[in-house]
Simulated scan of single mutants.
Amino acid sequence: MNEDVRNIVLGVLATGISASLGWLGRTYRWRRRLRRKQAFFGLPGGSECLLVVNRESGGDNVVHRYDVFAMLELSALIKDCGAQARILPQDQTHQGFGDRTEFCVGGPYSNRRMAAHLTTLLPGVRVNVDVEPSEVRGSITIGAERYLMEKGRSEYVILARLTAGEGHRPVFLFCGQRAITNQAATRYLARHHETLARRHRGGSFVLLLKVVNSEAYGPDVVELVADVTSAARTAPPAPEPSGATATEPAATT
C-alpha cells in the first residue's frame, strides 16, 4: 500500500514538473517572438507611435472606409506589441521622423505627409496625381518602370519600412493606387512581418505589391511583384537644361 501511494505521488510530481517545464518553454518562445515583433516595428512595451490618417480623394476631411479598415489592422499590431497609437490627420503632423514609429497610410494626393515622405525618403518613386481621368492616372513609377492601374482588376501599392532620423525608429509607408490597396498592404504586413524581419534583418526595404481582382477578392489576394528598395531610394538623374546645345570645339591654329 505504501509503495502504491509512493508511485502515485511520484507520478503526480512528474506530471506537475512536466507541465511546468512545458509552460515555461511556451512562455519563453512567446516572449522571444514578442521581442522580435517589437524590435521589427520599433514598438517596445509602453511606447507611443503615430498613425497618420489621410482623407478620401475628393472628400472634405472624410476617411475612406478601406483606410479605416487599414487603421484597424495596424491598431491590432500596435496593441499586440503593448504600445499605444496617437492618431493624427495628414495635414496636422508637423514633426520629424525617427523619434517614434510612424505608420502613414494613403497616396500623396490625399496625404500631404506621404507626399513629403516620398520626396525625402523615396526620391525614385513618382505617383501620378492627375485629377482628370486618363490611362496614367494613379500610376506609380519606380526608377524607369511604370505600373498602371486597372481598377478592380490589377492595382499596385508600395509597402516600405524605412529607418531615418536621430531616433532610428522606423517609418512604415502604405502608398496605394486605391484605398483598398492600402488595406491590402497593411494585411500583408500583419501576415508576413516575421518573414520580412528575417529577410531584411531589421533594415529598410521597399516592396511593390500587386492586388489581384479586388472587385471579387477584396484586399486578400496580394502578390509580391518586386523588392524595389534600390530603385526607390535612388534619385533620378537631373534633366538636362532645355536650352542646352552642343558646342563645337574651337578651331586651333
Rank of each mutant, 00 (worst) to 15 (best):
M1S: 12
N2F: 02
E3L: 10
I8M: 04
V9Q: 03
L10I: 11
G11R: 11
I17N: 04
I17Q: 01
S18Y: 04
A19D: 13
L21N: 09
G22Q: 08
G22W: 02
L24P: 01
L24Q: 12
L24I: 07
L24C: 07
R26D: 06
R32I: 00
R33H: 13
R33K: 13
R33Q: 10
R33Y: 05
R33I: 10
L34R: 15
K37W: 02
Q38H: 12
Q38N: 12
A39M: 08
F40P: 05
G45P: 08
G46R: 12
S47H: 03
E48M: 15
L51P: 02
V53A: 12
N54S: 15
R55P: 02
S57K: 14
G59D: 08
G59F: 06
G59A: 14
D60F: 13
N61M: 15
V63H: 02
H64G: 06
D67E: 14
F69P: 01
F69N: 05
F69D: 08
A70H: 08
L74T: 15
L74I: 15
L74F: 03
D80A: 14
C81I: 10
C81W: 07
A85M: 10
I87W: 01
L88G: 01
Q92R: 11
Q92V: 13
T93K: 03
T93R: 09
H94Y: 09
T101G: 09
F103K: 12
C104E: 02
G107K: 06
G107S: 06
Y109A: 13
S110D: 00
N111H: 04
R113A: 00
T120C: 05
L122P: 04
L122I: 01
L122C: 14
G124I: 08
V127Q: 03
N128Y: 00
V131D: 03
P133Y: 04
S134R: 01
V136H: 03
S139V: 07
S139I: 04
I140V: 13
T141H: 01
I142C: 04
I142P: 05
G143T: 07
R146G: 03
Y147I: 01
L148F: 13
L148D: 00
E150I: 07
K151Y: 00
K151S: 00
K151T: 00
G152T: 09
G152M: 05
G152C: 09
R153G: 02
E155P: 09
I158M: 01
L162S: 06
T163N: 00
A164E: 06
G165P: 05
F172G: 03
F172V: 05
F174I: 01
G176Q: 00
Q177I: 05
Q177N: 00
I180E: 02
Q183L: 02
T186Q: 01
Y188Q: 03
L189I: 05
L189E: 01
H192I: 03
H192W: 02
H193R: 13
E194G: 05
E194C: 06
T195H: 11
R199L: 04
F205L: 10
L207R: 07
K210Q: 13
V212T: 06
V212E: 04
V212P: 07
N213T: 09
E215P: 00
Y217Q: 07
V222C: 11
V225D: 14
V228W: 07
T229Q: 10
A231L: 08
R233S: 13
R233M: 15
P239S: 12
E240C: 08
E240D: 13
G243Y: 11
P249H: 11
P249K: 15
A250Y: 10
A251F: 10
T253W: 12
T253G: 14
